[in-house]
């Protein structure tokens, strides 16, 4: 029957760990649309970097490069425009909640 105190100790340790919450909780920053658009912008920039590199490596002909670069720049411009519009509406940036 030595297992009973062992099991009790285990259960108490688990309950203590689960329910004893000292201090404040880390909740992280809230995800906003502007944040989402910044992620998209980063992705488009990465695509632009890839395209530039492939062009320099000789994989993409001049005409293809110009057209692909232009469409990626259009996409980035659209994103930047919306980001700046959202930032002008909410100038105070949110800080992470702790």
């Amino acid at each position: 029957m030595t297992w009973i105190p062992l099991c009790l100790m285990l259960a108490i340790a688990c309950l203590y760990y689960v329910f004893y919450l000292p201090g404040r909780l880390f909740l992280g920053p809230e995800k906003t649309r502007a944040g989402y658009l910044r992620e998209r912008k980063d992705a488009v920039y990465e695509n632009l970097r890839d395209l530039n590199f492939e062009y320099k490596a000789g994989k993409v002909p001049d005409a293809d490069y110009a057209s692909l670069k232009s469409s990626l720049q259009d996409e980035a411009a659209t994103l930047l425009a919306e980001i700046s519009r959202l930032e002008s509406l909410a100038p105070a940036s949110r800080k992470p909640r702790v």
């Binding site: 998209r40 530039n52 720049q73 411009a77």
Partner: peptide, 22 residues
């Protein structure tokens, strides 16, 4: 990567259509 990417030059769009929804 020490590669610089020129910023898109078409920021003048003011009435940008909304990008895909997030």
């Amino acid at each position: 990567a020490p590669v610089r990417v020129p910023a898109p030059a078409r920021l003048e769009r003011t009435q940008a259509a909304p990008v895909v929804t997030g």
